[in-house]
């Protein structure tokens, strides 16, 4: 039963990693850039949710506060692209990488100034409630995390497969010039994808903050989410989720069975292995062009 318990908590953790990884993948899929600040986006989303919900701050009803936080993060994402990242249009990817690293540092600083560096916990209506199945104890938060993540991934997957906007986003990433020719407003589409990444970050943040305390440096979790995205194959949405789950599940087991000190290494070691043996990830997005 111990193993099952570890597995469930690992899955819930993995879902959060997966959600951050989804943010990476979204932006990579649509703009061919990588947002190194996605972890800090999540941290910021979590703090905004806490700020709206917790009794110490605004004290708005939880079910109203979360959509509001999601909206705020969406707008933030859109504005960030419009004001800063759009200037990088057509520049090498690495410029955006460096830019987003810097933005991450700035977000961390702002969060530290506004909310301080003490850990915060989100006050949710389902805090402390548990579901008991035999000797297995499931927290409501864990169940919520798993369900929301699955739904969100499914939604995004279908969005990119079926929706016109999703297709336009993929086209814009594959060839910007050609996308212009077929009438896609590439810059606007890119701003929208950043907004969507902000939304996903807010969801991930709210879920994470309901499960564990959050402080400005939580954004560094983004590095683990990188591992998740790479394992899944950058550019694949289900891959990101599965990569996150792998990392999430491996972690508690490594901590349980390996001597102290070795367990933190496990996620990155897996990632390096994947990078070396199968650089395109488990769900490869590499395609050979048909001539």
């Amino acid at each position: 039963m111990d193993i099952l318990q570890l597995l469930i908590s690992g899955l819930a953790n993995g879902c959060v990693y997966g959600l951050i990884a989804l943010g990476f993948v979204l932006i990579y899929k649509a703009t061919e850039a990588v947002n190194f600040a996605q972890g800090d986006f999540m941290m910021f989303g979590a703090f905004i949710t806490i700020w709206l919900t917790n009794a110490d701050y605004m004290g708005i009803n939880f079910y109203l506060a979360v959509p509001l936080a999601i909206l705020i993060m969406g707008i933030l994402g859109y504005l960030l692209d419009m004001l800063v990242i759009r200037r990088m249009f057509g520049q090498p990817q690495i410029a955006v990488v460096i830019l987003t690293i810097a933005i991450g540092f700035i977000l961390r600083f702002i969060a530290g100034v506004i909310w301080g560096h003490e850990p915060h916990l989100l006050e949710t209506p389902f805090a402390g409630k548990e579901l008991k199945i035999g000797s297995l104890v499931l927290g409501f938060e864990e169940i919520a995390i798993i369900i929301v993540t699955l739904l969100l991934t499914l939604f995004l997957f279908l969005f990119f497969r079926k929706a016109k906007l999703g297709q336009a986003m993929q086209a814009a990433s594959q060839n910007q010039l050609a996308a212009y020719y077929v009438g896609i407003p590439v810059k606007k589409v890119q701003s929208l994808i950043w907004a969507l990444a902000g939304v996903v970050a807010a969801v991930a943040g709210a879920l994470f903050a309901s499960k564990g305390a959050i402080d400005p440096s939580t954004g560094l979790l983004g590095i683990k989410a990188f591992a998740a995205a790479v394992i899944g194959g950058f550019g694949s949405l289900p891959g990101a989720l599965i990569g996150g789950l792998i990392i999430g599940v491996v972690e508690p087991f490594a901590a349980y069975y390996l001597p102290a000190g070795y367990s933190q290494v496990a996620p990155y070691a897996i990632m390096l292995l994947v990078l070396i043996l199968r650089p395109a990830g488990l769900f490869s997005q590499m395609q050979n062009k048909k001539v």
Binding site: F226, V230, F234, M271
Partner: peptide, 16 residues
């Protein structure tokens, strides 16, 4: 590895 992947791979080395 290329571009982004190289950046992430070296990032992992730094963390490790």
């Amino acid at each position: 590895l290329h571009g982004i992947y190289l950046a992430i791979g070296t990032l992992a080395i730094s963390v490790l």
